[in-house]
């Protein structure tokens, strides 16, 4: 009796294993699983029909049946993994594109600003900020530019009232800083400024500036030259030379414009540098004693220099942008060109 049952179990096992090995689809394997190990399976039928057997025989056959069941289940599991893997391999199209993963980009103007802050930061300049809507006093008067001074023509101003205006440079931040902090002062003032000028490829009604201020005992024009020279070499390249030429700003004296060798043409002359081989990049000078007097710093005790440059101007040179309006139009196709690490 047990003999025939155990033979029957063995037959079931062989048959199941053969069918499992032959199965090639997930569905087939699940069907086999229910056929051989489910409630209505042959195996269950065998186990249900043990009434005539002794307790020992029942235990023996039960053990055998369980082994068969385990073997079958194991075989199904193994085959299932093989089948799943091969199906996946067959459906993997190595030439299909990946699922898109987006990354943003920084605006070129803030990128240049960050770079400048980094260079000056390493030279010990802190960042100072101030309001964009200013009083006439901070924007002009305290900067040695009284009302009806012809220098006001250099900066066409948006007015909010007689005494309130949109700052035309970040210099008022210098005044506020000097009022608040006693020398030594070493700071840069990045920010947005406004000019009432017709909008064109070369000028916009607002732009960004970064000014710098250094006040200490015994600061000289030679120090100014040294600092600017170090900045130019750090930022534009170690071999790029700069030169100073006299200029006029009401709040500095002596005043200078700084030209650097044109890095676009290796100072051979190109349309951007108007064939001169030099590019104008910033204005600077020694802080005028009248500015010191306005903020209560004794000009006999302290001296200092200030400088300022336009962020748009530098970004235009650096990235070969020929129309300033592109920065403010924010066409994503323009901006996405600035993706980088």
């Amino acid at each position: 009796m047990t003999q025939s049952i155990s033979e029957k179990l063995e037959t079931v096992r062989q048959q199941a294993l053969a069918e499992i090995a032959a199965a090639s689809a997930e569905g087939q394997l699940y069907q086999l699983k229910s056929r051989y190990t489910g409630k209505k399976s042959d195996l269950s039928a065998v186990l249900a029909d043990l009434g005539a057997l002794s307790i020992d025989e029942k235990r023996q056959i039960g053990g055998l049946a369980n082994t068969v069941k385990t073997d079958v289940l194991q075989a199904i599991e193994d085959r299932l993994s093989q089948v799943v893997q091969s199906t996946a391999a067959a459906s993997f199209d190595a030439t299909a594109p990946g699922i898109p993963c987006v990354v943003g980009s920084q605006h070129p103007l803030t990128m240049v600003l960050d770079e400048l802050k980094d260079v000056f930061g390493k030279m010990g300049f802190a960042v100072a900020e101030g309001p964009e809507v200013e009083t006439d006093y901070y924007n002009f008067e305290a900067l040695n530019t009284p009302k009806h001074h012809p220098a006001r023509d250099m900066q066409d101003t948006f007015y909010v009232s007689d005494e309130v205006l949109l700052r035309t440079h970040t210099s008022p931040v210098q005044v506020r800083l000097m009022e608040k902090q006693k020398p030594p002062i070493r700071a840069i003032m990045p920010g947005r400024v406004y000019r009432n000028e017709e909008i064109s490829a070369r000028s916009y009604c607002l732009f960004h500036q970064m000014e710098g201020l250094y006040i200490d005992a015994h600061v000289t024009f030679a120090d100014l030259k040294g600092t600017i020279d170090a900045f130019v070499r750090n930022y534009f390249g170690n071999s790029v030379k700069s030169k100073f030429r006299p200029s006029f700003f009401p709040f500095t004296e002596p005043s200078a414009e700084v030209d650097i060798q044109c890095f676009l043409c290796n100072s051979k002359g190109c349309p951007v540098c108007k064939r001169t081989g030099w590019l104008e990049i910033m204005g600077c000078g020694m802080v005028d004693p009248n500015v010191f007097n306005a903020v209560g710093i004794n000009p006999d005790e302290w001296s200092g220099f200030a400088f300022g440059m336009g962020i748009e101007r530098i970004a235009m040179l650096k990235y070969d942008v020929t129309d300033i309006r592109l920065f403010f139009e924010n066409d994503l196709r323009f901006l996405e060109q600035f993706k980088h690490v």
Binding site: G104, S105, H107, E132, C205, L206, N330, L332
Partner: peptide, 13 residues
């Protein structure tokens, strides 16, 4: 930028 956003700089007027 990491969230996939692109920075813009716009006119405040």
């Amino acid at each position: 930028k990491g969230y996939g956003l692109t920075e813009v700089v716009t006119n405040s007027l």
